[in-house]
Computed example of a mutant assay.
Amino acid sequence: MFINETTNGTPLDSSWLPIYKIQGSGFYIGITSDNQWVIETNNSLFSLDASNRAIPIMELLELQPSEFYSAFYSACEEKGILKDIQQNFPVKKVIETGINQKSDYWCSLALNWLQALPMAEIGPFKSQLMDILEEKWLSQKTKQRIKKLLKF
């Protein structure tokens, strides 16, 4: 169950602005008045920085990164969200959540998003990717993609 709280358990500011509806899910990504990125589902908000509550955001992984960014930035601009706030969207959290699912499907989708990042931003994921290379749940194709990304 998702509740209105931040990573440290304090209540989220209930004044928020819905910005982007995740296609096919009914979930909304929005921002609170104190610039926290949140997701709304079943009339509850939760912070995208809350490590154990990011499952609904995985639906983003099923979109092509370019499609998401185009629609997301356009929606942000329509709502008057400043570019520096837009660029603080926790995309790395989305990627990390996909990799951590121990599912070839979600990991493969997360790799699509990881490959869309500038090379300089891939570094923090290298040890996480190295750690999963020998996992049995990972397909050979996904392992090869990881090795290519890590430049083996």
Rank of each mutant, 00 (worst) to 15 (best):
T32M: 07
L48D: 09
K102R: 13
G123H: 14
I85V: 11
N35P: 05
Y69H: 10
L63M: 11
N43R: 10
A110F: 05
Q87I: 13
G80R: 11
V91L: 08
L82K: 07
L61E: 03
N43F: 12
P124D: 08
A120N: 15
F46N: 15
E40C: 04
P124Q: 11
N112G: 05
E62A: 12
K126F: 15
E62P: 01
A54R: 11
K126T: 15
S103F: 01
W106I: 04
N52H: 14
I55W: 06
A54Q: 15
L82P: 00
E78V: 08
K92W: 09
I99D: 02
F89R: 04
I95D: 06
A71Q: 06
D84W: 11
E96R: 12
F68E: 02
F68D: 07
A110Y: 01
V38K: 04
F89Y: 08
F72S: 03
V91Y: 03
S33G: 11
D49N: 15
A110S: 09
K93G: 13
S74C: 08
L60V: 06
G98D: 03
T97V: 11
L60W: 02
D34C: 12
L61D: 01
L114R: 00
A120T: 13
R53N: 15
A50I: 08
P118H: 13
L63A: 07
I81E: 02
S47M: 06
Q101Y: 05
S74M: 08
K83L: 10
M58V: 06
I55K: 11
P56Y: 00
K79Q: 14
Y73W: 10
A71T: 00
I55M: 06
S33I: 11
Q86Y: 04
P56T: 00
L109Q: 09
I57N: 05
L45Y: 04
L63S: 06
T41N: 01
I95G: 01
E96A: 14
S47Q: 14
Q64D: 10
E77G: 04
I95Y: 02
E40G: 02
K102M: 10
P56M: 00
P56E: 05
S66K: 03
E62Q: 12
A120I: 14
S51E: 09
Q86M: 13
L61F: 04
P124W: 09
T41W: 01
T32L: 03
G98K: 00
F68W: 10
S108C: 13
A120Y: 15
Q86R: 12
E96P: 04
N112H: 06
P118F: 09
S108E: 14
I99P: 01
T32H: 07
